[in-house]
Design a protein around this nucleic acid. Sequence first.
DNA 1: ATCTACACCTGACCGC
DNA 2: TGCGGTCAGGTGTAGA
Length: 338
Amino acid sequence: MPELPEVETVREGIAEHSVGRPVRAVRVVDARSLRRHLPGPAGFEAALTGRALRGAYRRGKYLWLTLSEPDGALADEALVVHLGMSGQLLVRDEPGGDLDSESGSEAEARAAYDEVPRHLRVALELGPAGDSGSTSGAGQRLLFVDQRIFGGMFLSPLVPDVPAAAGKASLGEVSERFLVPQAVKHIARDPLDEFFDPAAVRRKFLRTSSGIKKVLLDQSVISGVGNIYADEALWRARLHYAKPARTLSAAQTRDLLAAVTQVLRESLAAGGTSFDALYVNVLGESGYFERSLNAYGRAGEPCHRCAEAGRTSLIVREPFQNRSSYRCPHCQRAPRSR
DNA sequence: ATCTACACCTGACCGC
DNA sequence: TGCGGTCAGGTGTAGA
């Protein structure tokens, strides 16, 4: 399930392999992946073809690519990608002449390039990076693959979003890093954002009667956290998911936000969490953070912290908002009342 | 305004 | 073998 570390891993892959390349053609295999692009598949193809991928950005679980016009100017709309539950972006480099003999024949490389993933929904045909008019050089395919079609791609106009902490920049001189797609503007800055504002999060905690996990999952309060990392952060902070957010002390809030930040960072360093083939990086490789999980998916297994203390308590799985929550019954006690 | 419920989706798995 | 039910769960929106 792509959450912040998985999306950031994908963003880094796109930045490394695809940024700078012109879009030669777009192939829409399943229009449902463009549900949020109101002009439809034909409008999507027309908007992208001839523009080049310029920069790769992310906020929370949203990823977007800025675009360059043929004359090099920044386009006024960006390509937004959300991976949903099962989305992937895969980079396939066109087999070139510089294949080393170790990696097999050109025919094998060509076959791998031509192989179509089962749930391919949209394919961008990219040219070589650099001079966008060139027709020679190694091309690439950027594939949007999505089994369940909860994710999607669409174009959204860029609007200014300058954080107060950045000082006042006049609208005319807003740099690309202070532009955000209109469709992403309601998403709060995530804990890995340099302008993440813990005090603003605390104020929102105090204004709601909801349980803390529900609030952690609210992308307009703090973004990038999904079910897995919410459970992991709550385990680290020894908090029960139902504890009302407004009852957290300043210290508990600080510790919880530190735990969220830490677990996201650690997972990113491991390349994300992969339970199955549904989450992979742009090269199709799995992350290995799953082995570091303390709560999520560990029902019936011993709590690591309790085991350390010479105590045996087993992680429990409980229904929570039409999904599951995992916690240690000893470390994460239910709140007194409600 | 704030919150809840549901729709959107496919595939793996389970009990009968 | 097949078939219906359940689960996985992020997001946007309709409705309360």
